[in-house]
């Protein structure tokens, strides 16, 4: 018991140090401008722009190949077998359950980012789904009460505080990330430990739960990676670009002014 709490303490220290270290890295991102689909700049970003800066490319490509083999030989067959055992309804319930567990972590992140309207949404979602959604197995909040899921990670929080991306990073068994965002992922992971503490402090069990969660997630996205590989000319570049685009969109969503959008018929007489 003492051993594991020491492990926890050490990990926290490591994490804090990583944050401080990253903080001293000058922010690479100067601004998020020109990221709009409707502007031509979106298609004319020149090489060397932030999102393609990849100084660790040769190392990343090695890890990418490793991940690719692991996926094809181990992860995919396991997830496929698992998907045959359980119907997709139940698997998506599990996925909603795991997502709900992370809501308190998201709540703290929205507070740290100053997104207070989102904090309220996350809190309400957590309360509704944990009760009416039967421990979070169903997303009643989105379906019945119109509270759509909100994304908020420690990576975003660090970005809000001015911590730069560092560089693009392919993490073994995890995939695309950046130095900053992966620190965020680890930090968010530690935010989950209070759940395990009441019944286990065994690192192996936690890892097992994590693997189960990831297998379940993968089982709902079977074939996506193969499709991407089949249609791309350089899967490494394709995935890197997809990662940055997806992330950018996620962050824009949470801050984009709703007034830009019109639903249904539009009033075209306005300029």
């Amino acid at each position: 018991m003492i051993k594991s709490s020491r492990f926890f303490f050490r990990s926290m220290v490591l994490f804090v140090m990583a944050v401080i270290l990253l903080g001293s890295v000058p922010p690479v991102i100067a601004g998020q401008g020109g990221a709009d689909f409707l502007s031509d700049e979106f298609y004319t970003d020149q090489p060397g722009s932030v999102e393609t800066a990849d100084p660790l490319e040769s190392l990343n490509r090695v890890v990418f190949t490793f991940n690719d083999r692991m996926y094809t030989w181990v992860l995919e067959p396991v997830a496929r077998g698992y998907s045959h055992v359980l119907p997709s309804d139940i698997r998506s319930c599990f996925s909603t359950f795991f997502r709900n567990l992370l809501e308190p972590v998201r709540f703290i992140n929205t507070l740290l980012q100053g997104r207070f309207a989102d904090s309220r949404t996350v809190l309400v979602r957590f309360l509704i789904n944990s009760t009416c959604g039967i421990y979070g197995f169903a997303d009643v909040a989105a379906r019945e009460f119109n509270f759509p899921p909100v994304e908020a990670t420690l990576g975003q929080t660090l970005a809000t505080w001015g911590v730069g991306d560092g560089c693009y990073l392919v993490v073994p068994l995890y995939g695309s990330s950046t130095l900053r965002d992966f620190v965020g992922v680890v930090g968010d992971g530690f935010g989950m430990t209070p759940y395990y503490y009441p019944w286990t402090r065994d690192f192996g069990v936690m890892a097992g739960v994590y693997l189960g969660k990831e297998t379940n997630r993968l089982s709902l996205h079977l074939g996506d990676y193969e499709e991407l590989k089949k249609l791309s000319f350089d899967p490494y570049v394709a995935l890197r670009d997809a990662y940055f685009q997806y992330r950018r969109k996620q962050r824009q969503h949470s801050t984009s002014p709703e007034t830009l959008w019109e639903s249904g018929r539009s009033d075209l007489s306005k300029p």
């Binding site: 689909f37 979106f42 298609y43 090489p47 393609t52 791309s232 000319f233 350089d234 570049v237 394709a238 890197r240 670009d241 997809a242 685009q245 997806y246 950018r248 969109k249 996620q250």
Partner: peptide, 21 residues
């Protein structure tokens, strides 16, 4: 002239790959 699937632009994704090639 472009399709965005889950936030990822098809044209932009190919653009990045083609540019390298």
């Amino acid at each position: 002239y472009d399709i965005i699937v889950e936030g990822v632009s098809l044209v932009r994704n190919y653009m990045e790959q083609f540019r390298e090639i």
